[in-house]
Amino acid sequence: MNDGDGGSRLTTVALEQHETDLGPGVAPMLSTTPSEVVSIQFIDLLAGITIPAHPAPARQFVVVLRGTIEAEDTAGETRRLGPGDVAFAADIKGGHITRIVQHPARLMFVVLPDGAPGPA
């Protein structure tokens, strides 16, 4: 998240879910409310590299599909994310460092429209 002073901060966010009924004979599941998105992109990072400090290009969800990455904010706090983990990158004016801990890493980026609310 953007800390308001040009830096980035790592925070934990909760995705609100509700029970969804798909019909007779199908067990209910938990789902989030559908969101409009601008784009979706898959990126494979093939080497154990460090991506220097950079801002997120847009407010976006980052989903780790394979491998392990580590993100470091401008205060030096780090978080590791592995398969199935979801991050919300909103530091479009700040910056973060990304390290590929276990490669190959495959990430999915889901860009939200301008003005769309992010996670709670």
Rank of each mutant, 00 (worst) to 15 (best):
R66W: 00
V63H: 02
L81A: 04
G115H: 06
A56S: 15
D21S: 14
G4F: 01
M1Y: 12
R106W: 00
A116N: 08
L10Y: 09
I51P: 04
V62N: 03
L46G: 05
V38A: 11
H96N: 05
A87P: 03
H103W: 01
V38N: 10
V62Y: 02
E19L: 12
V111W: 04
V13F: 14
V62S: 04
V62T: 09
D114L: 14
S35G: 08
L81M: 11
R66E: 01
T11P: 02
P104W: 02
I49S: 10
G4I: 02
I92Q: 07
Q60D: 05
I43K: 09
M1H: 12
P55C: 11
H18R: 15
G6I: 07
P55F: 05
A87D: 09
I51Q: 09
E77D: 13
E16D: 14
F88W: 15
F42H: 12
E72Q: 12
G67R: 00
A47I: 05
R66Q: 04
G95Q: 09
G23S: 11
P83S: 14
V62K: 02
L10E: 03
V110W: 03
H54M: 05
T74V: 06
P52R: 12
E16R: 15
A90M: 11
T32Y: 11
R79Y: 09
L65S: 07
L65R: 05
S31Y: 07
G82W: 01
I69A: 00
G95D: 07
G84I: 10
E16P: 12
A87W: 04
G67C: 02
I40A: 15
D114E: 15
L112M: 08
R59K: 15
T74R: 04
L112A: 03
M108S: 01
A27N: 03
V63G: 00
R106I: 00
F88C: 07
L65K: 03
V64I: 15
E77L: 13
G23T: 08
T32G: 10
V64Q: 02
A87H: 06
K93I: 11
Q41C: 08
A105W: 00
D114M: 14
G84H: 08
L45S: 01
T20A: 12
N2C: 07
S35E: 15
M29D: 07
V38S: 10
T32C: 12
V26T: 13
S39V: 08
T98C: 07
T12Q: 13
N2W: 04
T32P: 03
A120Q: 12
A47P: 01
G95E: 07
V111G: 02
I100E: 00
R106Q: 01
P83I: 05
V111S: 09
P28T: 06
R99S: 10
T32R: 13
I97Q: 03
P34R: 03
M108F: 01
A47D: 11
S8H: 06
A87Q: 09
V111L: 09
N2L: 08
G23H: 07
P119L: 12
G67Q: 00
